[in-house]
């Protein structure tokens, strides 16, 4: 592959991944409203286009047309920086996720992953930590009590749950022996999904993923009923749209990460035995991965419309007194089992 061809292929891949995450985030807002409505025996948006499919467009236009308000008492630079960071960090995590097996076209190998850095998991952890800044800066710069409270809650919640999440990942890394998402996805062939070996780690990771994306039952940073919307109280127009959008992109990315880490990524049991051509299998792999992602996005919404919000002290108790000891136990358990049975793969 020449350098220009390589550059072109990477640029195209970046563009596709970016577009897909934006489109999925867009339609997640629609899906969220539909799922909410269906679970409450309603119909949900169904007026804009067939089945209300144009609703996200209408919402987007509305967001753009709204008056842009920057409070005079806010610090203007940080006020704009907040949503920018939130949007930026949620968009760049898609770079390390392996969307499918490599395509083979004309003797060249085209991996369906923007970049296979050997510390993919650490990269994602780092970026989600930066994501906290978006909320924190935005909440602080608004110069509003509710925003500040929301920002405080967000930062303490995300920092607490990141620990348990990191510890859950350590057990997984012990088990897989690599930090590269590509290798983790590639080794889960057949029924060797990591969930089989790491059920406890998966539950911890899932709970932490809910907390990291600020979804119910951990939506304390927003908690409309007590903080009027939390960190984005003062935001309007597209800056508010960015915050809300970033949440949906985060949801999509964390669904992708959960599928990759624990649910076999692009693998599906028994599909290798069919002996399909390589490229067709690769495309099917992408389809399987997206099916898993959509299931988890649905799961996020399902939980949101089922559970009420945690109280703040309950949240902290769960994070520090339950999840962290449990994940440490999980590490010890994984280590002991590996001592006796060796690497399970």
């Amino acid at each position: 592959m020449t350098f220009t061809a390589f550059l072109l292929y990477k640029a195209l891949l970046v563009l596709i991944v970016f577009t897909i995450s934006l489109v999925i985030a867009m339609y997640s807002t629609y899906a969220e409203r539909k799922v909410a409505a269906f679970m409450q025996d309603r119909l949900g948006p169904n007026r804009a286009g067939p089945f209300g499919l144009l609703q996200p467009l209408a919402d987007g236009v509305k967001m753009f047309m709204k008056e842009e308000i920057i409070p005079t008492v806010s610090s203007k630079f940080l006020f704009i920086l907040g949503p920018s960071i939130a949007m930026f960090t949620s968009c760049i995590t898609g770079a390390v996720i392996p969307w499918g097996p490599a395509l083979h076209i004309g003797g060249n190998v085209y991996p369906l992953q923007v970049t296979d850095i050997n510390i993919g998991i650490l990269y994602i952890m780092a970026i989600t930590s930066i994501g906290v800044y978006g909320i924190m800066i935005g909440g602080w710069a608004s110069n509003n009590k509710y925003s500040l409270l929301g920002a405080l809650r967000a930062s303490s919640q995300m920092i607490s749950y990141e620990i348990a999440m990191g510890l859950a990942i350590i057990a997984l890394v012990m088990h897989t022996g690599t930090l590269s998402l590509n290798k983790i996805a590639a080794m889960q062939t057949g029924w060797h999904w990591n969930i089989v070996y790491q059920p406890l780690g998966f539950v911890i990771f899932l709970i932490c993923a809910f907390a990291e994306t600020n979804r119910t039952p951990f939506d304390l940073p927003e908690s409309d009923s007590e903080l009027i919307g939390g960190y984005h109280t003062e935001y309007s127009s597209m800056k508010l749209g960015f915050y809300l959008f970033a949440e949906y992109i985060n949801m999509f990315i964390s669904s992708a990460i959960i599928s990759t880490l624990y649910f076999g990524g692009y693998h599906m049991p028994f599909i290798e035995r069919l002996g399909m051509p390589e490229n067709l299998a690769a495309i099917l792999g992408v389809v399987f991965l997206f099916a898993k992602i959509f299931f988890f996005i649905f799961f996020f919404m399902w939980v949101r419309w089922t559970l009420p919000r945690f109280r703040y002290d309950q949240l902290m108790n769960l994070g520090w007194k339950v999840l962290i000891p449990l994940s440490m136990f999980n590490i010890a358990l994984t280590g002991t089992l590996m001592w006796f049975f060796g690497r399970l793969h």
């Binding site: 269906f38 679970m39 409450q40 025996d41 309603r42 119909l43 399902w302 089922t306």
Partner: peptide, 16 residues
């Protein structure tokens, strides 16, 4: 248990 309740409602006839 809660999730199963909401899922049942998901497939119920809508009252709208």
């Amino acid at each position: 248990g809660g999730l199963s309740i909401t899922l049942r409602h998901f497939f119920k006839k809508k009252v709208t």
